[in-house]
Design a protein around this nucleic acid. Structure first.
Lengths: 336, 336
DNA sequence: TTGTATGCGTTATCAA
DNA sequence: TTGATAACGCATACAA
């Protein structure tokens, strides 16, 4: 590979001049510039990014850590991040941790090794102390995952309020026995959503029945399995609030297979509004997170940190939206 | 940020020794090593990756260019790539070109700038000449996209044979008027699948009717739209072969909305076997591409190139599989 | 407007 | 087993 020296020799100028031409600085006379350009062309020269970054101490690359690239929930967020990044001259690289906490730590290290200028983590499963320690020294933003009393900049929605909203909606539709499908209790996100569920029940003087709360993997299979159990309850339920759309779809599948009519006999609502929720039939009522905006906000926050600007707020709480589709409705007295 | 010099000073040794400890080379006596380790700990030192890469002229990072990260088709492929990469000490970074050819070129440049040790492109929309030129000098593998008579290493399936297989399956089920939903005719992939469709018809002495071939965006909406048109045909059809699963799902949606029974009145088959195809109801019959294997093979090929080993073959053609689900079946004489 | 010389942080070669 | 020092390729302060 030719380097800047080779080009300088070929063009009969100094390396400094070549460098100026590469970064098209103005202080090079047309004629000299052409000579250099020609030499670059002849040698098929490409600046070495490593050397450049070493010199500049920055890469203009930001890294996004995604818990699982197979989860469509993250796609829109990525689009938001990419759009802001690109208009600001940054490249976005994505790393898939495959739901493996160890690899998050590894990638976080890329930051401290200065391979990238900043990181947006769509996860927060690494040890909290580590995240906070890294955040002290390097540009890091956490999105989607709310962090309690943490000094790490993050952008999220209010999961408690959102869950409360959608459960209240079910209650307004006449449902009284509402089950809750949830997942990993060690993730704050699920605890928050469950809290919202409890709050809505409490505010309407409905009993909290822990038999109606089911835990499983946040997948279609998990939703299917738990819905099957719920159907066996002696005292039947009329609605299910799943803490994630995939679980909700699983529940719908079980109901369809069992011959239940949705929403006439049964209402199902989810959370996140991922792509499949509007495609599946019946389409799913759910809470829409402003995914694209979330990505944009996170990237903007990161840019500010990189540039050393002062953050107005450490934490941005965005608005969610209740999306009513086909999978939920007024309870059918006859059907029960 | 502390550097290796600071550590050396703190530990009272030379930078060379520190470097040896970092890379845990054996030729450092226990006692010295401990001193260094302690210094590293005290200063919270992290080696600078830029400098390291500059020195080594390699990053142990490979880049995967994905046409659209929102397309679930690519997820399994990514998993395959990641698994092989990780077991060989490589990190995988993903870049989303958002179906934008220009950005592919940009990312390809990351290669020639030596930011990464190799690239796997799941696309091939950049100018062919450029891809071939880069491939001459840098480790590059193209997957999913078959390249005709090209010297660029790639791994793919035989799209013509696969399309022929699934259309033959429809014919075997009694279908005679089979429509074809396809997309961008400038993409070889779609041309190949259409060729397979034509071949199957020809081999069974069925007429080729270009009125039955519809072009649209490779999306659910595109499939919906064209299916609506197909339903208006004077001489009705009984089956549709879509060149992609998303279009097939769109077709299914239109049919359901129109009150057609699938598969009693109508058969729909797709191509790719993406995640939603088995989730949607009715589940979709389709051609399964060995996505994970494809990713693994591509990464293995890339590794060989990086290591300067000789490739046994430039092109790997993998086996596809016909997956029969609920959306297709024997033609119902009564229904028509 | 151009050139010279130094440093970015690391690794590798050679000598001690 | 350890240390001194020369690269790696580029950008920039300073001089011309």
């Amino acid at each position: 590979m030719p380097n800047i020296k080779d080009v300088a020799r070929e063009a009969g100028v100094s390396v400094a001049t070549v460098s100026r031409v590469i970064r098209n600085q103005s202080s090079v006379i047309e004629q000299t510039r052409n000579k250099v350009l020609q030499a670059i062309d002849i040698l098929d020269y490409h600046p070495n990014a490593f050397a450049r970054n070493l010199r500049n101490q920055k890469s203009k690359i930001i890294l996004v850590i995604v818990p699982d690239i197979g989860n469509t929930f993250f796609h829109e967020i990525l689009k938001g991040i990419e759009s802001v990044a690109h208009t600001n001259g940054y490249q976005v690289l994505i790393s898939d941790m495959g739901n493996n906490a160890k690899s998050e730590v590894q990638y976080l290290h890329a930051l401290s090794q200065k391979l990238v200028d900043g990181v947006i983590s769509l996860s927060a499963t690494a040890a909290r102390s580590m995240i906070e320690r890294i955040s002290e020294k390097f540009p890091l933003v956490v999105a989607c995952q709310y962090l309690e009393d943490s000094p790490v900049p993050n952008v999220t929605i209010d999961n408690i309020a959102a869950a409360k909203t959608i459960v209240q909606y079910l209650i307004d539709k006449g449902h009284r026995r509402i089950a809750h499908l949830t997942s990993f209790p060690d993730m704050l996100l699920y605890r928050d959503r469950m809290n919202g569920y409890f709050k809505a029940l409490a505010e309407n003087n409905l009993p909290i029945d822990l038999e109606l709360v089911k835990y499983d993997a946040p997948s279609i299979e998990g939703g299917k399995r738990q819905m099957e159990l719920l159907l066996e309850l002696k005292k039947p339920i009329t609605a299910v609030f799943a803490a994630g759309d995939t679980m909700a779809i699983g529940a719908l599948k079980t109901l369809k297979a069992a011959g239940k009519r949705v929403p006439e006999d049964f209402s199902v609502v989810g959370f996140d509004d991922i792509e499949i929720s509007s495609i599946f039939e019946p389409s799913l009522s759910t809470i829409n997170q402003p995914k694209r905006l979330m990505g944009e906000m996170a990237m903007k926050k990161l840019l500010k940190i990189i540039r050393g600007e002062k953050l107005k707020s450490l934490q941005d709480i965005l608005n969610f939206e209740l999306v009513v589709r086909e999978s939920s409705g007024t309870i059918n007295e006859v059907g029960n």
